[in-house]
Amino acid sequence: MKKYLKIVLALTASIPALYFSFYTESLSEKQLKEQFKEFNPAQMVDYCWEHKMEDLVRNALPCEEFFAGLQNDAQSYAAKHGKVLGIGSNYFFVIQARAEITSVDEQNIYLVLNKDIKSVIPKVNIFSNLARDASAWFSPDDFQNTMDFNTLSSYLNKKILQEVLTPQCEEFKPGVRIEFVAAIEMNINDLPFKEAVLIPYKIKILA
């Protein structure tokens, strides 16, 4: 009896050892790593757009909650919900909101958020790393140099123009109500917000 007990105990003890002796990864993970061995920004952006957008939209902060959180205690709200890239006082967020377009010109769509914050969505040119950094899809540590990391922004900005803004461009008119999920940047030393730039990942025109 004792002998069987010993065997059972030895087998039980060896299970974790065996488990931790192997490293497993899914085929899709493996294929993804192989695929991205060579730096291909367009492919990386397309992959995230297809596979990570759902999570990003689901976790977007409701606009009212975002502004209320900043008003109460900006520092701790930013630390909890914002993303920061390295060292600085700029935080990046993804918010979801509904708003009415107040005006449109050649370059931008204008609207008002949270009753009094003038906001602008660029519709022709998107610059900056705002969409990249708010999404947190990429880390500078994963790239050989910062030039590669910055190239991702150009592709992501282009993708937003092609997929989100250009197809609906004709429909953006004053008085039209929209629902959107967008990246927004906040410098905790420059509060309260006076103006905000929004880079949308999704925009829906409301009936």
Binding site: G86, I87, P140, F149
Partner: peptide
């Protein structure tokens, strides 16, 4: 350590 630390 973070490999790359960008400073704003």
């Amino acid at each position: 350590f973070q490999k790359k630390v960008p400073v704003a």
